[in-house]
Amino acid sequence: MIKLLKIELRKTLNYIPFRILIILHFVLFIFGIFFIPRVNFNFPFVTILPLYQFPHVWNFTTWISSFYNISLILLVIMLTCNEFNNKTFKQQLIFGLSRRDLLVQKIILLLLLSLYVIILVGIASITSGLIYSYKITFSLIFDRSWILANLFIQIFTYLCFGLLFSLIFRNMIVSGIVFLAYRVIIEPIIRVNMPESFRPYFPSKFVTKLTPSPDILSMIQSNMQSNGPNGANKPDAAAALFPQGLPMWENLILTFILITVLLSLSMWIFRKRAFN
């Protein structure tokens, strides 16, 4: 295991596009959290400050980070397809790795990337919370930090998707396009044509729901309530606009099942595929 970790690190960290993309991801994430919202949110009676305060900051940073997931998925697709292009999967088999080792190596990569994201989000949340919160207590800080664990599972699941697609198509561009098409076009179209009650059971639904987006409307409402007399008419507007979907534990179970399916399919491909 340690051996596979060392090999994967050597391969990945020496790959300059990887370093560039990770740095880019880091910079854009920080930029996205601390700069972009300030430009867009200039409405009267509305302050976005609660987003940067405990406990909402946890939802906010994870929500922002989800916009950048796609870049990490494409990174995984790139790194995996490169191994096919360069025939290095085959070469590592020749040198003495097993087919299982090849998969474990890639799973390690996915775990490392997921870990990187939650560390980044964790640090960003705590920093921002400490700076902007008026009231800081231990329980207030860590009240919603469970979301990091969910975020980890969520990112890992998406990356597993990326891995499977690159194992199926072996080609960076095809895998990337098919993944995007699935995520943005195919699944939403199928979902919309399904009865309401089936919709939460689609992968991008229950995986996305692992990290609830910040309840901006209700935050704004509460803000308006305290700032003006006319804001309190529709207390459950937020709930109406964002249906709750499944309970969290169901989302989690579905996600674990999905991960098992994705990794089993990947293993099956690694076992069956002729690496020549």
Partner: peptide
């Protein structure tokens, strides 16, 4: 086996 394959960027 055949032409040896290595990581081209390393």
């Amino acid at each position: 086996i055949e032409t040896p394959a290595f990581f081209p960027y390393m």
